[in-house]
Nucleic acid binder design. Sequence first.
DNA 1: CTGAAAGCGCTAACAG
DNA 2: CTGTTAGCGCTTTCAG
Lengths: 324, 324
Amino acid sequence: MSNITEIAKRAKVSRTTVSRVLNNHPYVKKEKRESVLRAIEELNYVPNMSAINLSKGKTNVFGVIVPQINHSFFSNLIEGIGKECNKHNYSLLVLQSNYDIKKELKYFDMLKNKVIDGMIVGSSIIPTNKINDLSSSGKIISCEYSASEKFPRVFVDHESGFKLAVDHLKSKGHQKIGLCLGNPKSGVGITRKKSFFNLLREYQLTWNNDWYFDERYTIYDGIKVASKLLDNPVRPTAVVVGSDQVAAGILYEVKRRGIRIPEDLALIGFDDQPIAKVLDLTTINQPIIELGEVAANLLYRLVNGEGIHADTKLELELVERKSV
Amino acid sequence: MSNITEIAKRAKVSRTTVSRVLNNHPYVKKEKRESVLRAIEELNYVPNMSAINLSKGKTNVFGVIVPQINHSFFSNLIEGIGKECNKHNYSLLVLQSNYDIKKELKYFDMLKNKVIDGMIVGSSIIPTNKINDLSSSGKIISCEYSASEKFPRVFVDHESGFKLAVDHLKSKGHQKIGLCLGNPKSGVGITRKKSFFNLLREYQLTWNNDWYFDERYTIYDGIKVASKLLDNPVRPTAVVVGSDQVAAGILYEVKRRGIRIPEDLALIGFDDQPIAKVLDLTTINQPIIELGEVAANLLYRLVNGEGIHADTKLELELVERKSV
DNA sequence: CTGAAAGCGCTAACAG
DNA sequence: CTGTTAGCGCTTTCAG
């Protein structure tokens, strides 16, 4: 494999000139440039990135830490990050931790080691006090709301997501709105529940404890929820459901009983999963790919010396279909 | 950031000795070793990988080319590759091509550029004649059956997978079987198509060109396929579908129209995705994570000079549920 | 516009 | 066991 010296010899110029041509510098006489280009062609020359990296002190590689890859949130996040990296000619090292703290720490060393120019933390379990030290390792962006404030974060605004749903129902005249959640104790669950009941109070909506369900995760759970809902003489006119799967189950059972959607019961799901599209379910979508893109863009700007905001919130979006 | 020279000075030894300590060479006097270790500690020294890479002529990084990441096949593949890389202390560069041939070629340059020590091709659309040239670029493993024989391949035995599906249908008495594929020009697509039509001939099954569909990827596509299928007076009694997503769409629409599954139409999907479980869809499962692991393992051995078999086949398995 | 020279930080053959 | 020396391949002043 040829190197810059051979090119220089063959083109009868100095290595410096070759380097200039390679880096598209101005101020190289046309003939010399062409001569170099010819030599490059003839010798089938390819630059050695390790040498360039060493010389320039950077690698044009970003890393992203995720516990696993085959998980819809993370694979979408990586997709977004990858896209944005592509735009700026960065490569992406995918660092899979399985939530193993040792691995995570090893990955952060890559910043110091100059393996990567910057790191995006998809999710990490390194405790806050330790992670603060890490911030000196290099440029870091976190995608977790709960992350240390030591480095810039970008995350989805779950609170406003529920507001979006309730506001939409309210605007359609609904005053009796039920709620169906997944795990009420998870971070997202707590936020959602709190957010919903705040709105309930604020808007002075009618409420009935029979309209609340949690620990519902599957289509089948949805079917059972629908039964309970319909067998109760006092019904809400709409239900906010924390998952499209569950909403699909509710929708299925409700329709099976000949009750019309949205006229008799309106339904709003979460996540815009494929099934929501099929069932024409109105839902709230989290822009995960965009989350990745924004994170990578911020990192790019950070690495290239631009100032960036400490926190970036992404809004969720209402996908209007036919269940409301 | 300190370097090896500073360590050497502080520890009052030569840079070579420092390097030896760093690389765990034997034959370093205990005191010197400790002295070096102390200096490293005190100066907070971290090796610079670019320099090591340049010097050693390798990077301990593998690359994997995939069209996209947020796709169950590829995210599982990457998951498997990542796991195996972790074992051998390799990092993984995820190269997203969107099936853009220029990008793919650029990625292959990374081999020559010494950015990566080896490449795993998840899927690629570079034509065979061109890809043959590539084989001189470096160590390559392909996960596509259709790939050039110039480099070792590891793949799921799609041929036998389709045989599994068709045999199963045939054993249930089906003689009119339709086919619905994704990208018919991808490696997998070509193989599947060929395999299917070979079986068709071999088993002398009835065939009708209206029973063939391709470029179908989503649930939504599935719904449209179902419409076409049902609106046609001449129907197959079963359909082999290259993706559970699409099969789910078909199943949904078929049921919506009051047609029974499997009595009126049998359906067999591919990939055993979660939705297949929910819908009780009979499907063919591919060991994709294992595929990734095997590919990475082969590449590792290839890069480290071990001889490996040219081709490795992984068997698929039939997951029997209620759609056949 | 061009080239000489001094790195970037680390490894490894060789001689002792 | 240890140090000297010569690279690895490219970039970047600096002086002309």
